[in-house]
Amino acid sequence: MNIFRLSGDVCHLVAIIILFLKIWRSKSCAGISGKSQLLFALVFTTRYLDLFTAFISIYNTVMKVVFLVLAYATVSLIYFRFRKSYDSESDSFRVEFLLVPVAGLSFLENYSFTPLEILWTFSIYLESVAILPQLFMITKTGEAESITTHYLFFLGLYRTLYLANWVWRYHEEGFFDQIAVVSGVVQTIFYCDFFYLYFTRVLRGSGKMTLP
């Protein structure tokens, strides 16, 4: 555990809590892509199956359970409790265009051809693109509430901090996970455009982020 890893995990947790509380308090999931949240729930489900096969640490187990619970709680708020506020018209990204290539790639490029490993690889690849329906939705509607952009900022910061963590671990432990690192770089690249807009529009301005 190093400072980049720990702060990355904290940012990830903060992001998920921000989104959950935003929906819970406003009783609305307007502007939120239910598809992205479903994909994240799928990411956690397929990655954390090792909860049943391996014990790593109390921290590891607790965080995995918290992520899983919050992911499914968020999905149920969007699709059940506050589904009337869900903007399915704008959430029109075709997820099969992500799921099919990601599933195919996880069969082709993995560390070992076993069910758990393939599902772990699938989750890593899927996480790198899972935010695309949300970014697509913002592009389509042309705006996002500032609280939604804070969520995206912390979510982007999380994987960016993981990049620093991997550099650190490579130097300290001589260990290099090519699947996670390449996917993490791809994932971070998707946030670059958003980071630019976040700093130039949300933090300097106020209220909603509007696209040009």
Partner: peptide, 10 residues
């Protein structure tokens, strides 16, 4: 350099 995966990561 070992190639591998960080199963302790989230």
């Amino acid at each position: 350099t070992k190639l591998g995966y960080y199963k302790d990561e989230l």
